[in-house]
């Protein structure tokens, strides 16, 4: 179980582990059109993001709705072109890959989506759904494909396999649907798995089951996983590092325990306050939350993007100058002027 990784282990591993994916100063901007043609600015969904993921490492990207998490992931999945910046996978720059290279890349990256029902074509049987990536991936031999489907379904515990092969998605429960999505993501035996809020649409009682499944697969196949969520409480079971994202930027990067036990960025602190644990006392107190809503990504605030909502704002600095990353403790990066 990867559950709560010991800080020391990670330290040791990190030195030897190879970098799988490295993102450098990534920008993803969407052009806004006025009346369908005139230029009306950009939605700066991802605005200067840098990080590395190592072999068999799991990281979590946490942030509010609309902060750019999915845009970041879809760019990594080569569904969007970066506006600026580099994505390097296995020492190959994505922007330099030709069609064949892109095919190769896609077969090495698995994608688990948020809404399991929407992620499965309603008119395809489970078998067909799982066969598709294999066909697209050029596996010509039907026998071989069926074999791999069986293997993938066994791995996600959709057993007995034959009971499920001919079913349509609507005949499955939410948890089973998500298992099919995971099986599809795993079927090409990827090196990197991108899971975009894989459990947020599921019933609370099956969330843990799915997360445990993902974490078992990660261990077994030495997968690198990017896990996107807005729910910090599930992160500590699953990831080694957390990146906190706010308005297109990563504002804090550290190991899970560091973030949970010693959050540095005021926004991270707010996220932790917002996360509930089952406790009857909760009903008696109001939560101290940052006022307002996340800023527009078209005209984000100057300086620190969190400053209009931040209770610790340093007037004259935070609202003027964009905070660089500081490292107040080893391996714990935070983009906030409080730590300069």
């Amino acid at each position: 179980m990867v559950a709560v990784p010991q800080a020391k282990d990670i330290e040791n591993k990190e030195n030897t582990r190879k970098t799988v994916l490295s993102i450098d100063d990534l920008h993803v901007w969407f052009e806004l059109k006025r009346f369908g043609f005139g230029h009306a600015g950009y939605v700066k969904a991802v605005d200067g993001v840098t990080f590395d993921i190592h072999e068999s490492e799991t990281i979590a990207v946490v942030g509010e709705s609309g902060c750019g998490k999915s845009s970041l992931m879809k760019t990594i999945l080569a569904l969007y072109k970066p506006t600026k910046g580099k994505i390097v996978f296995d020492n190959k720059d994505l922007s330099e890959l030709d069609n064949k290279g892109l095919h190769w890349y896609r077969s090495h990256v698995g994608y688990v989506q948020q809404d399991p029902y929407g992620a499965l074509a309603p008119f395809m049987t489970v078998q067909r759904i799982l066969e598709e990536p294999l066909i697209v991936g050029g596996i010509k031999d039907k026998e071989n494909r069926i074999q791999r489907i069986h293997k993938a379904m066994e791995e996600v515990k959709l057993t007995p396999v034959n009971d499920f092969l001919q079913k349509f998605p609507h005949m499955l429960s939410g948890g089973q649907q998500q298992r099919v999505v995971i099986a599809r993501a795993m079927i090409m035996e990827p090196k990197l798995l991108v899971a975009d809020e894989p459990v947020s649409m599921l019933d609370a009682s099956v969330r843990v089951e799915i997360l445990k499944l993902l974490s078992n697969l990660q261990e077994k196949h030495n997968l690198s996983v990017i896990y996107i969520t807005h729910d910090l409480s599930t992160v500590s079971y699953f990831s080694e590092r957390i990146f906190v994202m706010y308005a297109g930027n990563l504002v804090e990067k550290a190991k899970v325990r560091q973030v949970v036990d010693n959050p540095l960025h005021p926004y991270t602190m707010a996220l932790l306050t917002g996360t509930s644990e089952p406790d009857a006392k909760n009903a008696e107190t109001f939560k101290e939350l940052p006022p307002g809503e996340p800023p527009s990504l078209v005209n984000p605030p100057t300086g620190c993007r969190f400053h209009p909502r931040c209770s610790k704002v340093i007037k004259g600095l935070c609202d003027v100058k964009f905070p660089p990353e500081f490292e107040p403790e080893p391996g714990h990066l935070v983009a906030c002027w409080l730590y300069q």
Partner: peptide, 15 residues
């Protein structure tokens, strides 16, 4: 109750 993931504390959630 046992299936609730918790931020603090070390108990593994069950399902």
């Amino acid at each position: 109750m046992a299936s609730v993931p918790r931020l603090h504390g070390d108990t593994e959630p069950d399902f």
